[in-house]
């Protein structure tokens, strides 16, 4: 118990996860970072990526979208706009989304606003696919 960490994953739709975990890895904007109990309190933004936590020696993967993470010594709160657990991801849909995004990226100019949007969509699709395969 002593080295457990309280993790809360909050999305606008619901509390995606709430419970004690052994460790958690979060895709921060400044790079991925791992948190164990007793971590220095800090606040950072979260990017599109993969969130992994270990509970009872079992890893659980989530595909997450932008948000932020608040870390205190015994509690981590992750506020993100979407969070999908690996076993809920529809692989075929993710693959299609990836193909669509790739096709769109081909067509548009690099400096347009659309480009950034399409790039983010592609990122999300890739992350979702990776997570789904875990």
């Amino acid at each position: 118990m002593a080295d457990e960490l309280m993790l809360e994953i909050v999305t606008p739709e619901k509390m995606a996860f709430s419970g004690n975990v052994e460790d958690v890895t979060i895709p921060g904007t400044e790079g991925e970072f791992g948190v164990l109990r007793g971590h220095e309190a800090f606040l950072t933004s979260v990017d599109i990526g993969q969130l992994v936590f270990t509970k009872n020696n079992k890893k659980t993967h989530y595909a997450v979208n932008t948000g932020y993470a608040e870390v205190t010594a015994n509690k981590v709160t992750v506020l993100i706009e979407t969070a999908e657990r690996s076993d809920y991801i529809d692989k075929n849909r993710a693959r299609r989304a990836k193909e669509n995004a790739e096709a769109r990226l081909e067509k548009i100019a690099k400096d347009s606003d659309e480009f950034e949007k399409a790039r983010a969509a592609l990122m999300r699709a890739i992350v979702r696919l990776n997570v789904a395969e875990k």
């Binding site: 606008p12 309190a41 933004s45 948000g67 706009e81």
Partner: peptide
Amino acid sequence: RLDYLYEPSEEALLQKLLPMYVHVLVY
């Protein structure tokens, strides 16, 4: 008020959070 370490800086973080604030309002 907790004293956090901010990563990136407070200002940069705020820049990220403001658009999200708009999302929250619209939602």
